[in-house]
Write a protein that binds this DNA or RNA. Structure first.
Lengths: 265, 265
DNA sequence: TTGGGTTAATTGTCTGACAAATATACTGAA
DNA sequence: TTCAGTATATTTGTCAGACAATTAACCCAA
């Protein structure tokens, strides 16, 4: 039981001095105490609540799948209004950290954020910059070979085994376009993971998502799918042989071919 | 003047059917009416409001710097409560699309989102995966050479001019560590921009931000700064000569040296 | 046992109110 | 006249309370 005193939120609302120094054009002649302070941004209560809860999540004090206290409890524990709590929840939700569901057994549940938030953010920015789709394709053609190169030297036997299984599934799926696309994606993700670099994996996965989202619209002929299978075989062979440069080159030609198909439509 | 009738939000709450077809492994014996529907997610009012306003922004109907209607007006135009409007605003704010300020002449103002949201998202994910800092450094060592390579063939004369100016500023800043770091960053950003690929620019910028955030903590000796200037000179020369491979190689060695300095601390 | 209704817990939304921030207009004194 | 201070109005920030919607679990009767 947590009483109002050991509240999660210690010292709100900001009686804690809010001195703002305006550094207008006040270039005084006397430079004696010219310790220019930065304009200080006074945080909203909802931001503080979001921060508090976020830190609970990222520090692992609340694990994915577990529930956070209900809104009512948060209100009483934090000593803020439900409005404030709910605004904080919307922030965390848009960060992909939680989701909420009404009803008993509902509540606020912690998620394990995937790359979705990253992808959404990237997508939004690209939209705003009116970046052409070709830029995304180009980025992938440059990024995935990097992953393949790393994966060739870093893939564990288990990861190679997974990739082989993925190849089998891909073979079987030929003819069924949606499933084929699905399996292609799985293989690619496997390569990204085998590169053992979280940044690259997240990045390539995001651009991959953006491309797949558009690619699922167009169909693939069986001939094209068979070519894709061949390409994957070659990539996997290069990875197995731990030949990074070869793997990278094969990934690039594979992607180049796929991009051509995409543009065909 | 907009009355309550031509409200931005036409048909809430979601009676508007949201049917998605779910293709599970539901290979039923009777395939007669097996149109398995996906569990339909009924959107919150706040999400719809956020969507509406977001589309106003991304379609350019409201330009950065301009103001959105005040909360009061949104309430009357959209026909939802202020609670709902405010939750929507928190979502958009966390996406970097708007900011709010109280007072007259305050209100909701549209921002031009930079890469900040992307960086925050990436940072959060890396934190959750407990990715080592070295992964970020490695990613940069792989990504920036790609940019340099592209920039060598794509940089416009104006961009090269900018880079030369940046180099001059860097020379002058030697001795003043924070300013030196600043100028280094500016040069790098210039190279990213000259690559003319939005995805790569955003990605490398984000990674760069994460590194700079940590790098500003440690100091740089004047000798190290001079080495950095030399490196930038070499990179710029390669770019001017439109020698992509050389530029890429020089960027990589430059970064390798810098990473070593970082790890020295 | 089963079907259906009831109950209770939780989020979703609405309303109204007041506090805080702040640009503008006004007012009074030097 | 000029300037400092005050009043005012506008907008966001926060709070409190109420009711609606959702839904898991329970209970009860057929």
């Amino acid at each position: 039981m947590i009483t109002a005193n050991d509240a999660l939120l210690p010292n709100y609302p900001g009686i804690a001095a809010k001195e703002k120094s305006k550094e207008k054009a006040s270039m005084v002649k006397k430079d004696k105490q010219a310790v220019r302070l930065q304009t200080l941004r006074v945080p909203r209560a909802s931001e503080l609540v979001a921060e508090k809860l976020r830190s609970l999540i990222v520090t692992g004090q609340v694990l994915p799948g577990a529930g956070l206290p209900s809104e009512k409890e948060l209100v009483s524990q934090l000593g803020v209004s439900r409005t404030t709590v709910r605004e904080a929840l919307r922030i965390l939700e848009s960060e992909g950290l939680i989701s909420t569901k009404p009803g008993p057994k509902g509540g606020i549940v912690v998620l394990r954020p995937g790359h979705d938030s990253l992808t959404r953010s990237l997508s939004l920015l690209l939209q705003l910059e009116e970046a052409p789709f070709s830029a995304i394709l180009e980025a992938r053609r440059l990024l995935e070979p990097l992953c393949a190169n790393l994966a060739a030297t870093r893939a564990t036997p288990e990861e190679l085994f997974e990739l082989r299984a993925s190849l089998e599934a891909l073979r079987v799926s030929v003819g069924n376009t949606p499933q084929y696309v699905q399996e292609q994606l799985r293989f690619h993700l496997g390569v990204f993971a085998a590169a053992h670099n979280a940044v690259l994996r997240l990045y390539t996965t995001s651009v991959g998502d953006l491309i797949t989202a558009r690619a699922t619209l167009i169909g693939l002929t069986e001939a094209e799918q068979l070519i894709g299978v061949k390409a994957v075989e070659g990539i996997l062979a290069a990875l197995t042989a731990k030949n990074g440069n070869l793997a990278a080159r094969r990934v690039e030609t594979h992607l180049r071919a796929f991009d051509a198909v995409l543009q065909r439509q």
